[in-house]
């Protein structure tokens, strides 16, 4: 790689929820047009919900999100609905699309590795295991994609995390399903309080070093500012936010981490909620409409108690289903 190449670094500081999304999408347009690789940072000034490009708006709780609740913005990269608040620092690495390797997952990993090193520089012994983790806990939400002629990888540093608020944004089919989602999030998603400015400095050093680029403080150019105006309008357009009709699934499912997910389905009068980790049952709760509720890690016990071999079959199907 050309040593004389540069890395534009933009720290936007605290910005509105809308701008915390549209700014880096505008940078993608600039990089697509030949602008320099760019590392950007920002802190959202308020709470909102961000939903992935392909995901259905129906996944969100209509009372918590939308006109009567938190603002919802649809991003152009992947992943599911996420709760955002001022306790998070966003970072985005935006590079030309021809930096991609043929294997997409590998491309994202390469674009996140310097962030992992930056976590370690500020005293958080993070590692990459499908996502950025500390031990078995996810500490950074990430997503990636190609926007025009730019590759984008985004992530966050979580100073504090409101697990209950994060669980509340998802439309859950039953109270026990939301409770289980919250329980698993508390177990497997963790905040890593740190000095944001120290992380910004460390990440700048690590990204510049990893890609052999000379960092310089920059700002949006005129073309990107025009694109920003367009994106500001697009991201509040109900048609854009609404997206497309979601995939129909045989049961409700929500991802907690890349390895942990919670599912819920109904079999006749029984409601079955299960948590899985790497395809193995972590917990099962079976509820009936007349108030019986049994929670266990023992699938055999559930089947014996309710005399329902279909529960076993259902759990096998749920376990086999990869999290989306």
């Amino acid at each position: 790689m050309d040593r004389s190449a540069t890395l534009r670094v933009i720290d936007f500081g605290t910005v509105t929820p809308l701008r915390s999304q549209t700014l880096w999408h505008a940078i993608a347009s600039g990089v697509s047009a030949g602008g320099p690789p760019t590392l950007a940072f920002c802190r959202p000034g308020g709470r909102y919900v961000s939903i992935g490009f392909h995901r259905s708006i129906d996944e969100l709780d209509p009372e918590m999100c939308g006109p009567t609740g938190l603002a919802v913005f649809r991003r152009m990269v992947g992943g599911g609905p996420v709760y955002i608040d001022p306790g998070q620092l966003f970072f985005q690495m935006v590079v030309p699309a021809d930096w991609a390797t043929a294997r997409r997952g590998e491309t994202i990993r390469r674009l996140l590795e310097p962030a992992v090193a930056a976590f370690r520089d500020v005293g958080i012994p993070a590692s990459f295991d499908d996502e950025i983790v500390l031990g078995d806990r996810k500490i950074c939400g990430h997503a990636g994609g190609q926007i025009g002629g730019a590759l984008v990888a985004v992530g966050n540093v979580i100073d504090s995390f409101d697990h209950a608020a994060a669980a509340s944004i998802v439309r859950a089919p039953a109270p026990e399903a939301r409770d289980e989602y919250l329980r698993q999030m508390r177990r497997f998603v963790a905040a890593t309080p740190t000095d944001f400015d120290a992380f910004v400095a460390a990440a700048t050093h690590r990204y510049a070093d990893a890609f052999a680029l000379d960092p310089f403080p920059g700002d949006l150019d005129a073309t990107e500012r025009r694109e920003l105006d367009r994106l500001d309008r697009l991201f509040v357009d109900p048609e854009w936010v609404g997206g497309v009709e979601g995939r129909r699934r045989p049961w409700w499912r929500v991802k907690v981490t890349s390895k942990v997910w919670v599912t819920h389905a109904r079999i006749d009068a029984l409601r079955v909620t299960a948590a899985f980790r790497e395809g193995r049952v972590r917990s099962v709760r079976v509820c009936t409409d007349d108030g019986v509720s049994v929670a266990t890690r023992n699938v055999e016990e559930v089947m014996r108690r309710f005399g329902a071999p279909r529960i076993g079959e259902l759990l096998e199907e749920m376990a086999a289903g990869a999290p989306a």
């Binding site: 490009f53 392909h54 997409r104 997952g105 491309t107 994609g145």
Partner: peptide, 11 residues
């Protein structure tokens, strides 16, 4: 169109 795999959206 677009595809998504491993949280990556591509054309």
């Amino acid at each position: 169109g677009s595809l998504e795999a491993e949280k990556y959206v591509g054309p």
